[in-house]
């Protein structure tokens, strides 16, 4: 079996000694090509967990491996260049054009300029922002959804071993959000990306992820496929979380049914 893309083993983070840990002895692994969603309420430790993977935050205890390699053995800067990172509010640099934003990590890695430019054009095409009309724009000249997609393209640019995303679609209106989510899923499957995506929205997790890890107060409460969570929630908290998307879909279905009946009645 291939090595997991990302592996956490008994990982713990205490921001200050003596305070309750923000992340308590969490273990999970993400297979290559898999999307794992970290779900939980605000302050449950999702962001902390994510940032420890590319060493933006150093764990207090435990081991993290990326493509089988212990991250503490890798220069943190080189590690970050090999892992894509996208987050809410996007973090595009406002003084750089779309093209320069996407090209940042390849240039830091000193790719030949030809290759970088070709890569940028390919990625912009992939996210449906044709290079010719978007490459030289500034982030301020894009819509929220377009910016989000550029942020995603930037995370993909240096052909990373894995992608980390922190509430990437949080700031989008529902329609844009749906479009970007669909596009993300398509690109992810096309490229076989390994992804950890943080979200507080269980519906989003169910739509995007192969497996879902539910966090609560620093603990990993349950890890499983959406179906496993729906059919066999480990505790009340998980049951309550997964209840939301189920109720939504039931409700929508109930709205659909009379409409369909009514339609037939008329016919």
């Amino acid at each position: 079996m291939a090595v997991p893309a990302i592996e956490l083993e008994q990982v713990r983070k205490e921001y200050a000694p003596g305070t309750p840990p923000a992340v308590r002895d969490v273990s999970f692994s993400v297979s290559q090509g898999e999307v794992l969603a970290l779900v939980g309420g605000s302050g449950s430790g999702k962001t902390t967990t994510l940032k420890m993977i590319n060493r933006l935050i150093e764990p207090t205890a435990g081991t993290i491996r990326v493509m089988g390699e212990d991250v503490t053995a890798i220069d943190p800067v080189m590690l970050r260049r090999s892992i894509g990172y996208a987050f809410q509010g996007v973090g595009l640099f406002p003084h750089l054009t779309v093209g320069d934003n996407v090209a940042i990590t390849p240039r830091l890695l000193r790719w030949p300029e030809e290759k970088t430019r070709a890569r940028v054009d390919d990625l912009l095409a992939l996210i449906d922002l044709p290079a010719d009309s978007f490459r030289d724009r500034l982030p301020a000249e894009l819509s929220g959804g377009q910016r989000q997609r550029v942020g995603f393209a930037r995370a993909l640019a240096a052909e990373p071993r894995a992608i980390l995303m922190d509430e990437p679609f949080g700031a989008l209106d529902p329609i844009t959000r749906d479009a970007v989510q669909t596009e993300f899923r398509a690109v992810q499957q096309k490229l076989g990306l390994s992804v950890v995506v943080v979200t507080h929205d269980m519906t989003e997790a169910v739509l995007l992820a192969d497996r879902i890890a539910v966090m609560h107060e620093g603990d990993l409460r349950q890890l499983g496929t959406p179906q496993q969570l729906l059919t066999a929630p480990a505790d009340d908290y998980v049951a309550q979380l997964i209840e939301t998307p189920r109720r939504h879909s039931d409700f929508i279905e109930s709205l659909m049914r009379p409409a369909v009946v009514g339609g037939e009645g008329k016919a």
Binding site: N54, L56, V77, M78, R80, R81, Y85, F87, G89, G91, L92, F93, P94, H95, I104, T105, L108, L109, R154
Partner: peptide
């Protein structure tokens, strides 16, 4: 958030200063 983004894309401290912080403070 800009400083964090600079770190996250793999800039070293001097690169963060020259490529992100100084241009934004310009």
């Amino acid at each position: 958030a800009m400083r964090e983004a600079a770190r996250a894309v793999g800039m070293r401290p001097l690169q963060q200063l020259l490529k992100v912080e100084l241009p934004l403070a310009f």
